[in-house]
Amino acid sequence: MNKEHPSWLGRFWAVVRYEMLWNIRKKMFLGALLFAFVFATLNLALPGYFGLSENPYFVITFSAGNLTFILFAIVTGMHSISGEYEKGTVVPLLTKPVSRTMVFLGKLFAIFLVILVTYTVLFTYTIIGSIIVYGPQNSLYLAPLSLIGDVISTFIWVSVVLAAGAISKNSLIAILTAFGLFIALVLGGGIIGQLSDNPQALNYIPGTGATGTLNIIGGENITIGNISINTLSAVATGTDSIGNNLIKAVLYPNSEVGFYHQNIFNLTAPARLLYTEPIGLIALRSIGVAVLYTAVFLFVAWFAFKRWQILE
């Protein structure tokens, strides 16, 4: 049979299909989806339960949350490289006329699509739910920024999972590495944020980042016990809050965020101002940091995958 030379794009798309079918049929994926919806539902209902009646800012301060990021990253990414090796399915795959780079990019794109679609459904659910629970919402048109931010935040962890999987050829190691790193950063970041006079360091590692207060009037106070948080003026600078910070930067382009040191052993003492930063800078910097980490880990994953010898 005399064949035309097949296009790169056609073959790439075949890999995307292959990976998508795999991804959405995983039981773990359905589990993660369930978790995300339970989380979103609790998010919708709990503040109301603590006595908040109206919140027109709910949608634009909503984020799927860092636990969702790591979960979806693990569930979509854990098998895509290392699992092919463990199951032996990599042998027939890599002997098709698709290069390893194409396989890698196709799988990555499939993961992106799956996460994008899932988050879109999740955000739609949140928007509708919040209108029902909290009444009409402000600045709804900004919700996509939050969605994009959450996808970027998730991809840091996707790249970690892929890199660990490609190096170790072992899904369990991939999961444990990503989850271990996540826990270490959450704990470490929390401790540094509380105790250090130098929380800026947290801007450069994935996670929550430093926490500060936006100098604006507005938002809604959530009071639980005797701690009160304003949903709009509370700012976390890390890669987990890219979407929320982007929205704040659009809403209040000239506002500044103040960072304070609070002695946690003496809560009655006044907080000491450490420094201030424009919200726009915070948002852009966290995107830059996220993209950089993602790029580095993806490069490592691709490089390791490219050099695999298929012994099994």
């Binding site: 064949k3 299909r17 079918l21």
Partner: peptide, 16 residues
Amino acid sequence: HLKGAELLDVYGRMYG
């Protein structure tokens, strides 16, 4: 997780 025919279909696409 793929059906027999699905497998051949997706591999067929890889061959263009």
